[in-house]
């Protein structure tokens, strides 16, 4: 009995502590290599990360990221459109090899899946004009801070006020009005804004700078099957490569600027 349990532990224990890693086969990675195709699941209803173009084909930051990663392995990324809520079950069922879908890290899923390091943080940032001397949250005391009415930024601003922060909150109906009040009307000293909207504004040429740590963090990660340790290693290595080469920054500029331009044209 004890020896059976011991063997099971050796075979199935976490990769980092397993004594016999050579006995563990990453069937997901093997299948990707044999197929020459990395099947990536995403929900194309989440611009600029994933959306459908005029022909109905999925495009976006995550699609481009998946293609760039696959290219480093000499395979092709095949995009599989799956509803967001069904992505984990689809991965568990082996219908896809990974999820690349603006998927927030979820510690409750670590028993079922492996995660990459975050490739984007969509959380809440403090933004100021690039010419501003404000550099930290504490320097907002007595300052005028804009938020989008009803947003997470609004909620955090109200909470900071309840906790004693002496900031003067001003609500605006849209992120565009918020940014205009900061940069054009000069009626604000800082704004609380989600990082995607901020990056889109920056890509559109708005002179905005993010300061201090995110007020709230929403790290997006790539999700893989629990036993796909080799795939996880490959993803990590390639993410680092793309980061070092500046490819990730280029993708952000391409897709955040693309979306900002598209919205501006409407």
């Amino acid at each position: 009995m004890a020896s059976g349990a011991g063997i099971a532990w050796l075979l199935f224990a976490d990769q980092s502590v397993s004594l016999l890693p050579f006995l563990r086969r990453d069937v997901t990675w093997q299948a990707v290599q044999q197929r020459g195709v990395w099947r990536v699941g995403l929900d194309p209803s989440f611009p600029p990360f994933e959306l459908l173009d005029a022909t109905g084909a999925p495009v976006g930051y995550d699609v481009a990221l998946a293609q760039a990663l696959a290219e480093t392995w000499g395979v092709r990324a095949e995009i599989v459109a799956v509803g967001f809520d069904s992505l984990p079950d689809t991965l568990k069922a082996g219908r896809i090899d990974s999820i690349v879908s603006a998927y927030p890290y979820d510690e409750r899923l670590t028993q079922d899946f492996l995660f990459s390091t975050p490739y984007f943080d969509a959380g809440l940032r403090i933004a100021v004009p690039v010419s501003s001397t404000i550099r930290t949250l504490s320097e907002l005391t007595g300052q005028r801070v804009g938020v989008e009415w009803g947003s997470v930024g609004d909620m955090v601003g109200r909470r900071l006020q309840r906790e004693g922060a002496e900031i003067n909150l001003s609500p605006f109906e849209t992120p565009d009005e918020l940014i205009a009040a900061l940069l054009e009307d000069r009626s604000l000293d800082a704004i609380f804004i989600d990082n995607v909207s901020l990056r889109q504004a920056q890509a559109a040429g708005q002179p905005l700078a993010a300061i201090d740590a995110p007020l709230e963090s929403i790290p997006y990660v790539i999700v893989m099957p629990r036993r796909a340790a080799e795939l996880q290693n490959r993803v990590e290595t390639s993410l680092q490569l793309l980061k070092t080469r500046g490819d990730l920054a280029n993708l952000e500029n391409q897709w955040f600027g693309h979306q900002a331009n598209k919205e501006g044209a409407q």
């Binding site: 209803s45 611009p47 603006a102 989008e148 009415w149 009803g150 947003s151 609004d154 109906e173 849209t174």
Partner: peptide, 16 residues
């Protein structure tokens, strides 16, 4: 729903 980017969502102010 007032998710910032979900295609079936509205802005938070609209949701209110």
């Amino acid at each position: 729903n007032d998710h910032p980017r979900w295609t079936r969502a509205v802005r938070p102010a609209q949701r209110i």
